[in-house]
Design a protein around this nucleic acid. Sequence first.
DNA 1: CGGGATCCTCGAGGATACTG
DNA 2: CAGTATCCTCGAGGATCCCG
Lengths: 110, 110
Amino acid sequence: MLDHIGDKWAILVIRMLSDGPLRFSELKRDIGSVSQKMLTSTLRNLERDGFVTRHVTPSIPPRVDYELTAMGRDVMVPLNALAEWALRNRARVERSRRSFDTKRARATKE
Amino acid sequence: MLDHIGDKWAILVIRMLSDGPLRFSELKRDIGSVSQKMLTSTLRNLERDGFVTRHVTPSIPPRVDYELTAMGRDVMVPLNALAEWALRNRARVERSRRSFDTKRARATKE
DNA sequence: CGGGATCCTCGAGGATACTG
DNA sequence: CAGTATCCTCGAGGATCCCG
């Protein structure tokens, strides 16, 4: 189930919906680098798992809004905690990576 | 960076090391379904990011122990929070999935 | 506009064999 | 025992076209 949450776009979508419902096109535009196929599939999975509701307005052109469910807002608590940890410790990780990489480079040269 | 943590085995390995250092073979045996290639690469990434230290005992046969760093133990806090959330809400998600799937099945049949 | 259907690429990740 | 190297598979995910 956790692997499912790590679906590359899922967390991002959940965070985007935290300020209120958004249309499909708004999500797509704001993410930018996602294909509509992946956005659709991400939203389907989130809907299936009960994190998001899908509301269709049958008009021309059609309009579809996505909104977090109670459970969707619920999961944001631990999700945000993790995201904040990542932000606070980004520098530490970067430093560790650089030092690791330079050590490896030296070792390979010899 | 978060995508990197979701490396399919990374979280599992971190949690396994939470009770103390383990040898490569112990990790591999306890996980069971991981190839040594993926375990090696997972451990390299964790080491590179500074979550884990690698201690080599040059003997025959060789012995390599992996241990969480302070940062590794640190990240476990938000990680555990998320894992616990997932456990507590597993049933809710399962229910949502089943209801979603049966609705889809009905819709497809017609 | 939202999204299904199709085709295609590319890299994560498994299996196996070899080495210090 | 702990890796590295090699080969190979398979599915995530992108691009494109079409439809209500």
